[in-house]
Design a binder for these strands. Structure first.
Lengths: 340, 340
DNA sequence: CGTCAGTCTGAGACCGGTCTCACATCGGGC
DNA sequence: GCCCGATGTGAGACCGGTCTCAGACTGACG
């Protein structure tokens, strides 16, 4: 019931010095006699003294904690980032507190409050919504260390790491066009999240740049889950005069499309071509492997830590906006359309 | 630079009461005059008072934090559990601190120390090794709230949640035997981790129970990565007289085997049958889908939280050992061997 | 030998809360 | 009118550290 932790007072008493001296010996600052210091350290070891970061934090202001608020850790994108953050923070002797927003702005608000009450030194957030966010705006105004990743709410000029979604999508769609496709469908989710929006914009740009009519009936909205994507794909390809290629805006939708093609008996890339945004493991396990727009995901975590630590250390530099380019990873799921 | 947080002293002064009264009003304990309480609450709201959990924690002992030490968050098994822990802890108003051990006992030790220094109230650990672990043993002796998941070091009798690896593996191998297979290979990793060991034991048991000779040349050791597993599988099936079926002890190895079969031109289940331990997304995306031994993974997180919270609340009940049964999920990757 | 800088040390304030205790006030019952 | 319990309040201890300050001691230098 009582782990009765060893306090510095115990150590000091056992070593026959004052708390102040014990603290000096243990933390190595100020003047301490060599012999006394030695004695204190030995006693501390014997007693199994293990400092109390809470007390330290109270005095010094904050705990060596950084919070991470992903949409959902289950998403491999975020678990990769969580992993990288964990690793990178260890280098700065900080720990990582993770609390998912479940892509729900209300929950996000609450989670942010609860992390701030813990006096977390900084926050790395993937905002659940791209609407204006007064809470984040105020934190930014206060100079609270925070870094936005993946998505950015409107009107918030703080450190951020994003990816060029528009250009990435445009590149993929142009690639399809260059392969000869003219009827290219798109499945996207209507989330509040800006990334999907930008990817849709890139799609439209590509069509326009090549003088192709944007056939709105080829643009389908579907929740970002595998099963919804299956339904959407099936509806799309059961029509008469179906598209010859499909672009999907995230990996879950891409997976849904793959399954739908299989159940429709359409084989890639012979009957239909597929390109998706976001690389994912399965994309290389399927046959054929899937052509995707990939993000430099492994760079995001380390960079986010670097940014947030700089703020924690007091940097007042203007907000950094890093936008990574994407890369089109060409695999086997795209070919020229039949009969062209 | 200075967020100059509002303290209870500020609130008390502004409301013209003592700190004690302010605290009583804000936390609703003891006697407080209705009018005074009202005033304090209003002032607190106006000033944007936001308690300081660190100070509270110092007085009361601990922060509302629970630590989770997985082998590696990138592993979908652990990210599922992390997600479930996060959700479940929210119900108990606790936050989740995640620090991976990278499956390295030294790192694990260090991570445990650093979490304990943060006065985390309890720990949920997937130990990196099944060797005796003096550190965990001592914590257990002290009555520190902790729950072991997935793996258990020798000689540590504390709350734990595992899966019946032996029986699960045995069931899968017996299923292969019942389908008529006689030459069944196994690929496992030699990790310090007990789970792989138990699965190997289950394999041997199954063979023995059916009077099949254990051909040691069919038991291959390979690090648990996709690429090593590919090599191991290729070596195994390039022999003359190759096995007719393969059992793999974890999902990474299973994936390696799938890829190896593809590159060897062996088609499942016609040329070779495959069963693996652990379900994983790709198992249902491949063609054919893979027969696996699946764990009730979604039950682990919530149960772990229930257990650790019970300890945190002071339960001195004897250690609970929960062992979930596994389930053989039969899909399309197994058939009768050719020519039988 | 006095002085002074350089060492070492302990007392005690402080961080921001919680909580115990003693005191003041009030109304009701006798 | 007095006594008593119930209420409301503030002073101050306390949690476990950190850190400032002043005092004691040392040795070297003039």
């Amino acid at each position: 019931m009582k782990p009765k932790a060893v306090t510095i007072k115990d150590v000091a008493a056992a070593a026959n010095v004052s708390r102040a001296t014990a603290a000096r010996a243990l933390n190595g600052y100020g003047y301490v006699g060599g012999e006394a210091a030695e004695r204190v350290r030995r006693v501390a070891r014997e007693l199994g003294y293990r400092g109390n970061r809470i007390a330290q934090a109270l005095r010094q202001g904050e705990l060596p904690l950084v919070g991470f608020i992903p949409g959902d850790i289950l998403n491999p994108f975020f678990s990769q980032i969580a992993h990288d953050l964990d690793m990178a923070l260890r280098g700065s002797r900080h720990n990582l507190l993770i609390a998912a927003s479940q892509e729900d702005p209300a929950q996000e608000r609450q989670v942010i409050d609860s992390l701030r009450a813990l006096a977390v030194r900084g926050l790395i957030i993937a905002p659940a919504s791209s609407d204006r966010n007064p809470q984040l705006e105020e934190m930014h105004r206060e100079g609270y260390p925070m870094v936005l990743i993946d998505r950015v709410p409107e009107g918030l000029d703080c450190d951020q790491i994003t990816v060029d979604n528009r250009k990435g999508a445009r590149g993929a769609v142009e690639y399809l066009i260059r392969q000869g496709h003219r009827r290219i469908a798109l499945i996207h989710d209507d989330s509040r999240i800006g990334t999907a929006r930008d990817r849709l914009a890139g799609y439209r740009e590509a069509l326009e740049a090549h003088g192709l009519p944007a056939d709105e009936s080829l643009i389908i909205e579907s929740p970002s889950t595998v099963s919804h994507a299956i339904d959407a794909t099936i509806r799309l390809f059961r029509r008469q005069n179906p598209p010859t290629a499909l672009f999907t805006v995230d990996s879950l939708i891409t997976q849904g499309a793959m399954l739908a093609f299989r159940s429709l008996g359409l084989s890639m890339p012979h009957d239909v071509s597929l390109a998706g945004f976001d690389d994912f493991d399965m994309a290389t396990f399927s046959d054929p492997q899937i052509t995707v727009v990939s993000q430099p995901i492994k760079k995001i975590g380390p960079l986010a830590v670097e940014m947030v630590m700089a703020r924690i250390q007091g940097s007042r530099a203007p907000a950094r906006h890093v936008q990574f380019p994407t890369q089109l990873t060409i695999r086997g799921s795209v070919s020229r359309p039949r009969g062209s």
